[in-house]
Amino acid sequence: MRFVRRAWILAWKDLTIEWRAKETLNSLFFFALLLIFLFQFALGPDRERLSAALPGLLWLGFILSGLLGLGRTFAGERDNDCWDGLRLAPGEKSAIYVGKLAGNLLLMLAVEAIFLLLFGVFFDLDLVAALPGLALVVGLGTLGLAAVGTLFAAMTAHVRARELLFPVLVLPVEVPVLLGTVKATEAVLLGEPLGSVAHWLKLLAVANVIYLTIGVLTFDVVLDG
């Protein structure tokens, strides 16, 4: 109970600050808009090329915006030595990881919803039918991205050239998550049943369990480092 309250207050704090300052959200919204313009220029009016490339493009957008947002997770903690405050607060440090992760997850899902909306409008797609399956796949993939991203963002928070190092560390780890989500998204958008990609969904679930477990168990080391 105490753990939940501590994790919750951290997520609440991050989201409240984000809601008031909107630093990350505003930038990511324009980033999404720009990416979609670029995709349109690159693909042209050919519908067939679009539907073949769509899952990949969608996840390209998700992961680029996700990395931008995740990389900033601990930026606010550097001001006024708040990082030291997090370390000094007595109790399990993993609650801070879970809280940060929850805040990141909500923010990323919000940005991804905007992405999907923009994709639907700009490419004239009907995504409504695919939405339940899409929600599951996107949720699993985003969790996998956020679990590793939150841990590594804490790790690189005090390293030189962290803006460069962070994506370079995260991306290779995310290879299975990316391959799995792109394949599963492709199936969902083609209207295939989820059962046809069950092996991919299982892989994503296993990856998430592994990443979350490592994050929870090692976060005190990362924060105290």
Binding site: V148, P176, L179, K183, A207, I214
Partner: peptide, 24 residues
């Protein structure tokens, strides 16, 4: 400390990478 965390993530990730690349 950081290398230890990274080493654990990377090593446990190897089977996931292996299967995902194979299936892909």
């Amino acid at each position: 400390q950081f290398a230890a965390v990274l080493g654990i993530v990377a090593a446990l990730n190897i089977p996931l990478v292996h299967f995902s690349v194979l299936w892909w």
